[in-house]
Design a protein around this nucleic acid. Structure first.
Lengths: 196, 196
DNA sequence: CATTTCATGTAATCGGTTACATGATTAG
DNA sequence: CTAATCATGTAACCGATTACATGAAATG
């Protein structure tokens, strides 16, 4: 009765495989060496997750037949895997998701460009901006009203959260601008002036 | 042969109970209403976690005997619970922990002042500063060197991470200053009117 | 030849999510 | 009286952590 569903780690794997077919070992290295390590690591998580994706037909694996090479299984994304990824990426940006932490949002953003195009990436950023514009002031206000009667460390911890969101807001503006500039260059639009 | 261990949620509960004896319901509300909600919520996680703390003797619960009241169990921390909390709070700040995300670090910081005193809170901040001073430049350098050959969205996502850490560094400076100022004031003043 | 690195797994355990269950008390 | 809220749980499921296992190819 329950939809099996895909875990965040599953989507991280799916997105990486969508970008480039890889073996489990390669994927593990990516998690181990980059900031993506926050979504697990270690074979005990990754190999079972890959097998779940395989069983559900979201990826397919072929053993590399190269002559002098070690045997290893290269996974590539299937059509239904691509569809599931795109559906996940298209989900609305909710305050709930923002509260759960930025890691998952950033993962989605990082995959959006290749999977859905730059236009959708901008769209994602705009929706994020709207949510932040509604949420951050209320957080700031809560801090202003209750900060004084909290222990100093609690107030500071909250302040750290507020600063993070404010930084995120500035980043969103920067990211939107960056995208628009890059799009304008690609299209080589004869439009000279852009309003700010 | 394995030490049972306490989960992050367990420490969050332990720290809150250390600050103020509470019922499970009260604790749930704190998680539901504040930013602490990132560590779970929902009775299915909290009540079992409380029972584990109880079984390990880290907290004790007494049913409130108030006449006209609903029965509810008030938990208070035990000596060994207090010790375990302090030990957790005293752990060194490692880069590994920083990579796992700030939520847990901030939780530790928020509890440190009450459990170990303002001096230890400053100490925590200093250790965090040292780790960040070593880590952030390497992250920034990675972005400079590899950013150009990454997809735009990947570069931007990484940039967001760098900005977050830079914001955190500024926050650490601010927090240390705030603590030092507040300590200086407390020590200098011969206790004027402070209480209400 | 021994060690390291490549490459893929498996098993035990444990905690969290989801969803449901149960009563008691207060509010309308 | 009924509905909402208070207050505490329970059970099924599932995925992540930890630690161990295996074997083959490259490296010294």
């Amino acid at each position: 009765m329950k939809a099996p569903g895909t875990s965040v780690l599953g989507y991280a794997l799916l997105g990486l495989i969508h970008q480039k077919s890889s073996s489990g070992y390669n994927l593990r290295k990516i998690f181990a060496e980059t900031a993506m390590g926050s979504f697990s690591s270690s074979p005990g998580a990754i190999y079972p997750a890959l097998e779940r994706l395989l069983n559900r037909g979201l990826i397919e694996g072929k053993v590399e037949e190269g002559s002098g090479l070690r045997r290893r299984r290269i996974y590539r994304i299937t059509r239904s895997g691509s569809e599931e990824l795109k559906q996940w990426l298209s989900q609305p940006v909710t305050r709930d998701e923002i509260l759960r932490g930025m890691a998952e949002l950033m993962l989605r953003f990082a995959f959006t460009e290749q999977a859905l195009g730059a236009g959708e990436a901008i769209n994602f950023l705009r929706k994020l901006r709207v949510e932040l514009e509604a949420y951050v002031p209320s957080l700031r206000q809560y801090l202003r009203h209750n900060g004084a009667r909290m222990p100093l460390s609690g107030m500071l911890a909250l302040d750290s959260g507020v600063r993070n969101y404010e930084t995120l807001q500035r980043w969103v503006e920067y990211a939107i601008e960056t995208y628009q500039t890059s799009l304008a260059i690609k299209n080589r639009l004869p439009k000279k002036s852009k309003k700010h």
